[in-house]
């Protein structure tokens, strides 16, 4: 094969059933579709607190394990996965603060994967914040409504996420 032939791009339109079918007439209006979707989410809210309790318990167990194996990548990954679960659904279910705190904790765990040192106080402080964010007075607040908490957690995250320089490099 010549170089020209190798680099030549074949450009084509693939027959795409999604595009064809999704454009059919007869769909409900966007606003109505969004309302329906929102009511499906409302239906799920009845067991969200139970799920949140279970997931926080799982996170707490994973973080406790991390305390004794702070450099073990699989322990960090287990805690990260659990934390990411909370982050990924919190705001959709109306728990914006849960998403914010879990996201901050995910960033700390990410930094640990890169070599940052385990900091028990920082981890405990995020776990406490998550427990607080789940309680009735806080669950429907946005991060902007609790600026002291959010800026404090951000600052903690920044400090403990510093990855020490590798002297061998």
């Amino acid at each position: 094969m010549s170089d020209d032939a190798k680099h030549e791009a074949n450009i084509f339109y693939a027959d795409n059933r999604f595009e064809r079918m999704a454009r059919r007439p007869g769909a409900v209006a966007r606003e109505q579709a969004l309302e329906h979707a929102q009511s499906k989410i409302e239906e799920l809210k009845s067991d969200f607190i139970d799920w949140l309790d279970r997931e926080m318990q799982e996170l707490s167990t994973a973080l406790a394990q991390l305390e004794s194996q702070s450099t073990d990548m699989s322990s960090i990954e287990r805690a990260y996965t659990s934390c990411a679960h909370l982050r990924d659904v919190g705001a959709t279910m109306g728990f914006e603060l849960v998403t914010f705190i879990a996201n901050n904790l995910c960033e700390i765990l990410d930094a640990m994967k890169a070599g940052a040192v385990y900091d028990k106080e920082a981890i405990d402080c995020h776990m406490d914040a998550l427990l607080l964010a789940k309680t009735e007075p806080y669950r429907h607040l946005s991060p902007a409504q609790v600026p002291e908490m959010t800026s404090g957690l951000r600052r903690v995250g920044e400090i403990v996420s510093i990855v020490p320089a590798d002297d061998n490099k």
């Binding site: 579709a33 969004l34 309302e35 329906h36 979707a37 929102q38 009511s39 499906k40 989410i41 239906e43 799920l44 969200f48 799920w51 997931e55 990411a84 679960h85 990924d88 659904v89 959709t92 279910m93």
Partner: peptide, 15 residues
């Protein structure tokens, strides 16, 4: 994430 799947599924069915 099983719960995220339920949410996405719910939204799609809502659509």
């Amino acid at each position: 994430n099983a719960y995220a799947r339920r949410i996405t599924n719910g939204m799609l069915r809502g659509f």
